[in-house]
Amino acid sequence: MQKGFSLIEMLLAGLFGSLLLTASSQALIGLIRYQTDQSELLRLTEKTTLAEMALKQTLAFSADAVIIGKAVDHYPAKTPKKTHTQYSSLGNNTSFNQFSSSDWLILLTNNDEKKYGVFHLDKKSYGYGLAYKELSTKKIKSISNTLVNQVELLRFRYLPDENTQEHYCLEKQKITINEDNKVKEVEGLNCSAIEENPARGIQFAFILATQKPIKKPGDSSFYLWGETLIPPKDGLYRQLISSTVRLSKDVIPSAASSP
């Protein structure tokens, strides 16, 4: 015996049904958005760890020289400029691309064989990020490898001397930067008192951004070492990480070795 719906039942069912359908589709859309954001954040966390590890490892195994090229523009300046280094130990001019709002760092890795490398930010066809380039006199064309994408800012400073609070240059030779064919000395460094005051370590900081805009609001400004950094308002979520590494040639002071 067939029993169809009555009009009231039909209306009731239709009303409930459409309400629930709207609610469930909303919930599902929310779920999908949430998961997408979540995976972006996960990727961000992974990349910050990778970048931190890369910097820490390389710095910790670097023995000798560290020379800093300072940022020349305000953050964010993501146009890479070609930067030449004229560094006597490297013989030839070596060059690399570098975001002008970030610092760059030349490392001398240790022991028997001297190796030079530079940490810098640059833009390649597949995106921008933290890159490491080995500089050498033998290989004329060494390749800059991008280690971690989406790094927007990179800052270094020496672990300052306890008494004078000054930041030091570790190498005797001064370095000159040739930017747009303008040669100038690196500013803000006291390269005269090297042997008396070797720097103990390096502090670094970087800002990493997600690849896509996400719903979670990011910080409207970052405060790093007395400088306020205002990120662009593009919906990307950013994270500021800073850390300290001691150079391997440094003798561990007695205070640290006691338990």
Binding site: Y223, G226, E227
Partner: peptide, 12 residues
């Protein structure tokens, strides 16, 4: 307030 004079890294 005067973080620039401070030798510690207090960002975090």
């Amino acid at each position: 307030s005067n973080l620039s004079n401070n030798s510690l890294d207090l960002t975090h």
